[in-house]
Design a protein around this nucleic acid. Sequence first.
DNA 1: CGACAACACGAGCGATCACTCGTATTCTCT
DNA 2: AGAGAATACGAGTGATCGCTCGTGTTGTCG
Lengths: 214, 214
Amino acid sequence: MTDEHAAQPARPRRQARGRRRIEEILRAAAVVFADRGYDAATTNAIAAEAGISPGSLYQFFRNKDEVAKGLSEYYAERLDELSGTTFAVRVGADPDVGSLVGGLLEQIVAFNRAHPGFKALFSRTDMPAGLRAAVAPVQDALHARVHALISQLLPGVAPDESARVATVAIQLVRGMMPLITEADGDEAEALAAELHRALVGYLSTERGRPGAAP
Amino acid sequence: MTDEHAAQPARPRRQARGRRRIEEILRAAAVVFADRGYDAATTNAIAAEAGISPGSLYQFFRNKDEVAKGLSEYYAERLDELSGTTFAVRVGADPDVGSLVGGLLEQIVAFNRAHPGFKALFSRTDMPAGLRAAVAPVQDALHARVHALISQLLPGVAPDESARVATVAIQLVRGMMPLITEADGDEAEALAAELHRALVGYLSTERGRPGAAP
DNA sequence: CGACAACACGAGCGATCACTCGTATTCTCT
DNA sequence: AGAGAATACGAGTGATCGCTCGTGTTGTCG
């Protein structure tokens, strides 16, 4: 939520009250995005949820896309907190793909449940241009992390191929996440288990030197 | 595009001209949905693309959601044409999952390329309520077909589990399709190959009686 | 305290969009 | 031919929404 290197128009020195407001607005935005989706969410509804006036929202965010950007940066920080424990797994000589993916998936599902607004910003297959631009940096950061992990898992694979594998793995998870988070209890567990199968199956397929087809 | 059993308000007896207009409107809707997405598509833009006035569009469709519904039914018919050749595969005693999935995938990718509006209606993870309702019948029909196929592929699996497998398989494809259709040439091929790996890997994982781990 | 900036308000502006309505033209059926 | 239905037009309506602006309040710093 910190705000580095600004653009040309001098940005205000935030007071403590203002910083609290920003947090509150992002919390409200998450709520509204979560249950109406980004397009249907109105800035007035976000302001109302935050308990402030529409004008006040624009004291802190230039427009709706900037709110989405702020929220996505917030999520990026929350993900960074996980990365120390989750993504920074040291893969040994003989990695157990199943339990590795299992542990990761469990945390990712938990994260999505804990942050219902997350999938409104990240788990969309088609995004309006403004939203896409707002979340792109965070998407890229996530991809870099997953790519690093995949590279360790598939040591012999060329970087551009492992980058593609990372893209695909992320996309598979993104596609399934709405199904999982919207299902209840047992069905959610079962769907998560299916996603686990899919990922493990995917990452375990032969990917050797060209020419070898079993 | 035929129109069965109407609701209570008596529907007009369509003339040949009207039937042609409906086709033209759906074609226009596909174009506009494809390059702006459903939410950003305006009914006036659809009318303009179809070369008619906004009022004329509403001679044939009650509202925007009905246009989406009409288009999704059109796509359903196109998919039905494929089903004779594609989905009605007789699975032998020893099915080759790889080539089966490969053949299917090839046709599905081709279908998505040939019908750019398709993914705007079907490959979204979050849909506005009206759109969801409009495409639900077609989604269900597609699910039934895939489920039938999966049941043949996984003979020992209980119906509710194979239904879930069908849901997951469809979702994996839906998630990947935008990536594939928006990539160009080689990258699209590579991504399709990755999706193929993922599906085959997924459908080939052990799913037997509990307790048996290789 | 004085002054200046940050924060806050909420009515309302301008633009957009789904959809309507009055009217005119074309088709179909007898 | 003539009547009624279907098709066609397009300016316009009502509602929504992102965002602004004038004004007032609170915090900060000397």
